[in-house]
């Protein structure tokens, strides 16, 4: 296999990595916000449930969570949900791995939403009470104060921890190969097994590096854009 063929084959896998990355970010980032609000709730029950969920999800290895999501429907209800999706999508549309990828996306979204929620909570709670009070005495509602006064200050404060988490996310996508999803590392391992080529495995690092480079530049731009005010 030529260098270009290997690169193309690895890139096919990296597309799956990027898919997991994008869906986790697009679903997990918004989902983190209600979890953060639950963790700050005045109602003790809501708060406790939220804290326990965050504790469990952050406390178990992501790889184990992928296994749990993937196997639990079969063990509990004797129905291989994700296996069935795999079969159905392959037979009907010729798409492989659809069920496995779905299981991975659920596990990733849940896991990252919990991490994001703690970043949001920290950001929201770090805004001085005086900002809320200044809004109150001007007759604004709680929701106006959050949307028009607090939110932007929170965003400014959470850009560094969020970009940290997002950089971790692209590398975590490699965990998907634990249930045989054809992401980039899985493809590289396949080359090692079938063609006795070991260098593609190391070469995958370049894909991650380039992507993390782009993410770093993007987060730097956002920080710069928000540098016009201090809070």
């Amino acid at each position: 296999m030529s260098f270009l063929e290997v690169t193309a084959f690895l890139f096919d896998g990296f597309k799956i990595s990027l898919l997991i990355f994008a869906v986790t970010l697009l679903c997990g980032a918004p989902l983190g916000l209600p979890i953060a609000f639950c963790s700050m709730s005045r109602f003790k029950i809501v708060k406790s449930i939220s804290k326990v969920v965050v504790w469990v999800v952050r406390g178990i290895p992501l790889m184990l969570q992928i296994f749990i999501i993937y196997y639990v429907p079969g063990l509990l209800f004797d129905y291989q949900l994700f296996g069935q999706i795999d079969r159905f999508m392959y037979l009907e549309y010729g798409i492989s791995d659809a069920g496995r990828i779905t299981a991975v996306l659920i596990a990733f979204t849940l896991n990252y939403a919990c991490y994001f929620s703690e970043i949001y909570r920290g950001g929201i709670e770090s805004i001085p009470r005086g900002q809320h009070e200044a809004g109150y005495v001007l007759g604004l509602t709680k929701s106006q104060i959050f949307r028009k006064i607090i939110l932007k200050q929170v965003i400014k404060r959470i850009v560094p921890p969020m970009s940290n988490e997002i950089i971790t996310l692209i590398k975590d996508t490699a965990l998907a190969n634990c249930i045989m999803v054809c992401e980039i590392i899985k493809n590289a391992k396949e080359l090692a097994a079938t063609k006795a080529m070991i260098w593609p495995l190391f070469f995958t690092g370049v894909f991650y590096l380039v992507f993390v480079g782009i993410l770093t530049i993007a987060s730097g731009r956002i920080e710069k854009k928000l540098s016009y005010f201090r809070s």
Partner: peptide, 9 residues
């Protein structure tokens, strides 16, 4: 307020 509490953004 004592410490102004202007909206920084």
């Amino acid at each position: 307020f004592q410490n102004f509490n202007l909206f920084p953004q």
